[in-house]
């Protein structure tokens, strides 16, 4: 291949039958969406930064992650790139959130 094609740039590629799938969005998914809208309104993120970070996921991750998993990944990447959130505080806070979960499942 002497061209570059992004994993997201899929128009015209072979794919399967369209299944009319949908689900009621979970609260956490809506919150991810809300964070994107709020950060964009506060000029801390552009939709194109969100997209660029999603597009930089490897092909495997792009297809395996759910839609809002890709979004929270990309929102967080943008916040790190802009210096709004540091990697250190992010890592510590994720660990704290996981420790708080009583592991009831």
């Amino acid at each position: 291949m002497n061209t570059f094609r992004g994993v997201h740039d899929m128009g015209g590629l072979p794919a399967g039958e369209v299944v009319a799938s949908e689900h009621d969005f979970a609260l956490w998914e809506k919150r991810v969406d809300a964070l994107m809208v709020l950060l964009s309104r506060k000029n801390l993120l552009t939709v194109d930064e969100l997209r660029r970070n999603i597009e930089s996921l490897g092909a495997d991750a792009y297809d395996k992650m759910s839609y809002y998993e890709r979004w929270i990944y990309a929102i967080t990447q943008t916040l790190i790139q802009r210096g709004v959130v540091s990697i250190d505080e992010l890592g510590r806070r994720i660990a704290e959130v996981q420790a708080r979960d009583d592991g009831g499942n």
């Binding site: 570059f4 992004g6 740039d9 128009g11 194109d48 997209r51 660029r52 597009e55």
Partner: peptide
């Protein structure tokens, strides 16, 4: 490479 809104096709 980079973020491009002109589809490949």
């Amino acid at each position: 490479i980079g973020h491009v809104r002109t589809p490949y096709y």
